[in-house]
Design a protein around this nucleic acid. Sequence first.
DNA 1: GTAGGGTTAG
Length: 589
Amino acid sequence: MYQTMVRAISHYTSLLQTCINSKAIEPGKQLHAHLILNGLTSHAPIATKLLNLYTACNSLSNAHLVFDRILPNQLTNLFLWNILIRAFAWNGPYSIAISLYHQLLRGGLEPDNFTFPFVLKACSALSDVQQGRIVHQDVARFGWECDVFVGAGLIDMYSKCGCVYDARQVFDEMPVRDVVVWNSMLAAYAHNGLAEDALSLCNAMVLSPGVLRPTVATLVTVVSAAADIAAVTQGREIHGFSWRHGFEGEDKVGTALVDMYAKCGSLTVARMLFERLKETRVVSWNAMIAGYAMHGLATEALALFEEMKREGEVTPDHITFVGVLSACSHGGLMDEGRKFFDAMVREYSIEPTVQHYTCMVDLLGHSGQLNEVCDLIRKMSMKPDSGVWGSLLNGCKLHGNVELGELALEKLIELEPRDAGNYVILSNIYAQAGKWEGVARVRKLMKEKGLKKSIACSWIKVKNKVHGFLVGDLSHYKSEEIYAELDRLGGLMIEAGYVPDIGPVFHDVEDDEKMGMVFSHSERLAIAFGLISTPPGTKLLITKNLRVCDDCHVVIKFISKITEREITVRDVNRYHHFKDGTCSCGDYW
DNA sequence: GTAGGGTTAG
């Protein structure tokens, strides 16, 4: 009798394995029904296969059902728990993974080095750091802190919850770290806006005596960190490093490099690397298209999109269209933008996301079709976010529409009440329209809420050192020469026909700022420093944390002509390439 | 028999 049952179980497990291999859920379900009739579902080998089948086919309610029928004596089988928790941690609902974990503990079982990474993944997916900390305590309680898999899981959990210092603490306390632990920590920095820390940790990793070989993931992470802060020098170093270490054929690294060079303004290099990629993948096309778009090179972006369609090896996805639409938006190509938006929905059956709507609002807003913007916003299937209202507000600023600007700010206050930048834009709209009482009202509102405009700051890298400048900054060791250079250029500019435009800006500055601050805006200081510190003809790259103001934009155009320099300013919104008195944005930003 | 990290937009 016992022999027969063992044979039957082995027979069914192999049948189920066939179903798992081919993800054949229907035959699997028939087998399951058969097994229920024969009372075999509670046997661990069968239950395991059924669980595997349903998780492989993403049929989690069935998996749960199987689990519930497992005999009480099988509930001590940790392996079964682990694969069930894994199923929910990977596919959701994530909260079920967590409640199963607690159920497991209540049943008196001890989680192991497999359980923790799974349940931590569920915490990450929910960004639930409280739950994550509870699990962390359990990790310590059960003595798994030194396990590299568990450690990487903890670092990743803290990182995804935005607690990068907790992640670092876990990292520091690990006695032995493998390459994935390092990669997790690099990613934690990179994804939490600490690109500089990611880059220096990468240096430490490469130099550390453990001789850890970086992996594709290491390089992809740090290249994208360099891209985030437009650190072209470090990006180039990593590029060289990856070539020397045999990663030149790795397309994923290649794509990250395409993105990095594009973000650093070297579009020719980006394109060259793009052409050298071996596989055709949609991410690579997207990176290149978006690269052109962010520099206002709409023609190139759209030509590449057409080429992508012609080659037909990859299908455009929703991110491709964010690139295409933002190319249209930055290039002021109204009709094309509409055409692509329609094509996206009709030909490619891509549901527009809020980003696509933001591009369209930007596009329509720039060309002054503000009523159409309102129609579009009404038609949206989701709640407009701050990006959408912010684009509308910017459109109102460009076209001096006070009423709609007020509406947009109202919505923005609901969504991000502490963002001073929005108030400043509305205040500028009032100022342009000569409505000084409106300016005063906004200022009062900001004061009541205790909001301060964020301090403008610009950076420039000269000889591998980053120099930062605040508005009106006098702290730089070359301050005197910087202001002298600005004075000298100011004279030349006026000769060339420059008329300062400080009207709106005067009403836009902080109360404690003095009139005339516009002459010492941070980007001008950074540019002047760049000019006096580099040989003639050197291109300058400046990064700014806010938008470039109207007057600075005019001034930089003059400077580019007078000094015969190419100047790139990467503001919070886009890139401006100044050359020979014009800007790539076509004065349109 | 189960496991951790990575690229494009915003």
